[in-house]
Amino acid sequence: MNWPTQKLETVADFCLGKMLDQKKNRGEHLPYLANVNVRWGEFDLADLREMRFEQHELDRYGLKYGDIVMCEGGEPGRCAIWKEQRSSMMIQKALHRIRPHDCLRPEFLYYFFLHKGRTGHLASLFTGSTIKHLPREKLALVEVPVPPRSTQDQIASVLSAYDDLIESNRRRIQLLEQAARLLYKEWFVHLRFPGHEHSRIIDGVPEGWEKKTAFEVMDVLSGGTPKTTNPSFWEGDIPFFTPKDVTDFAYSHDTEKSITEAGLKNCNSNLYPKDTVFITARG
């Protein structure tokens, strides 16, 4: 598709958030997003902190509907689109706030950056050898496609419909998993399982049940990581599960990283089958 392109700095207003400085900051306490609150395509608003903002800072550091919020460090390029999930939301310095001009529909620009970020096409802009960053001056030079507005609307509408469906299914899954947790607690913690009225409790468990250690009923194994400096170990077809892949759902269907057969042979981890339970040891 031969759509015209323009540098981001010509089609959007963007800035970094405010530096957290408890001694210097003045104004009203307001909630803000930090790097950890921005996930791929969504926000984690469960544990928000507050910072002081003055009146003249509200427009610069405040979020409006359609703003794209992107991580500057940690995992640069990770982004989500703000849809007024909460009022009076601000951003911290580790985040870029991208506000497109009228020539771009916010959702179209968001899906452009989501694709670029998830497929590694922004990696050439990163700085830093250990901790990666995506500086503002590098982001400004990204070439953004600017198709006719009608084309943008069509693309954004189709992709948004899929996202809405995914979100609806996610909420249903959360409700089902919550029900499963409550049922588990009712049956196996409070011991109010079907027929419990006729069961004797002996040594804390119903008659006929046994108490065993985890090592007696399962294999408890550890993981390992191939050398990150060897590119031949990475970007293969084998999913590589890390603490970042832990979600609120019981099952993980995707991982951010993947390794090759060579990577598997050169790390201390086994290839684990479906229905393996992972418990994070740290992080």
Rank of each mutant, 00 (worst) to 15 (best):
V144A: 02
A123S: 15
I91H: 00
V146K: 00
A156R: 07
F126D: 08
R136L: 06
R118P: 03
D102R: 10
L139M: 13
R149F: 11
G120A: 11
L104F: 00
Q85K: 06
K93E: 14
I98Y: 02
K93C: 13
L134A: 07
H101S: 14
S157A: 15
R149L: 14
A123N: 15
V142C: 06
H115N: 08
S160C: 15
S129K: 09
S88K: 05
P106Q: 02
L125C: 13
A161W: 07
A94Q: 15
L139E: 09
R136C: 05
M89E: 00
L104V: 03
V144M: 02
G128V: 15
L122D: 11
G128P: 15
K116C: 03
T119W: 05
L104M: 04
H96N: 04
A156M: 11
H96R: 06
H96D: 08
R86D: 09
R136T: 15
Y162S: 10
V144I: 04
Q154I: 14
C103G: 04
P147T: 01
H133F: 10
I131L: 12
E137M: 09
V142M: 05
P100I: 08
P135S: 10
L114C: 08
H121Y: 07
L95W: 02
L134G: 04
F112S: 04
S88E: 15
S88T: 12
L134F: 00
T151F: 01
R99F: 07
L104T: 03
V142S: 08
I155T: 03
S88Q: 07
F113Y: 09
L114D: 12
R136Q: 11
L122R: 09
I91G: 02
P147D: 02
L109E: 04
R149Q: 11
G120Q: 11
P147G: 02
T119K: 10
H115C: 04
H121F: 03
Q154S: 13
L134P: 06
L104A: 03
A156E: 02
Q152K: 04
P145E: 06
D102Y: 05
H121I: 11
T151C: 01
K116V: 00
P147L: 01
R118E: 05
T130G: 13
L139V: 14
S150K: 12
Q85E: 10
P135I: 14
V158W: 01
G120K: 10
D102A: 06
D102E: 07
F112D: 04
R99I: 07
S88I: 12
T151A: 01
R99M: 08
I98T: 12
I155E: 00
L159M: 08
S124P: 05
L114R: 06
C103M: 09
I98P: 06
F113Q: 03
T119V: 14
P148Q: 05
F108G: 01
F108R: 00
M90S: 09
K116S: 06
A161F: 12
R97W: 01
G117I: 10
K116P: 00
R86L: 13
S88L: 07
V142F: 03
K116W: 00
L125G: 08
D163G: 04
H133Y: 10
G117T: 11
H133R: 02
T127C: 03
S129T: 15
H96K: 01
K138Y: 11
E137V: 14
L134T: 03
T127Y: 01
F126E: 11
E84I: 12
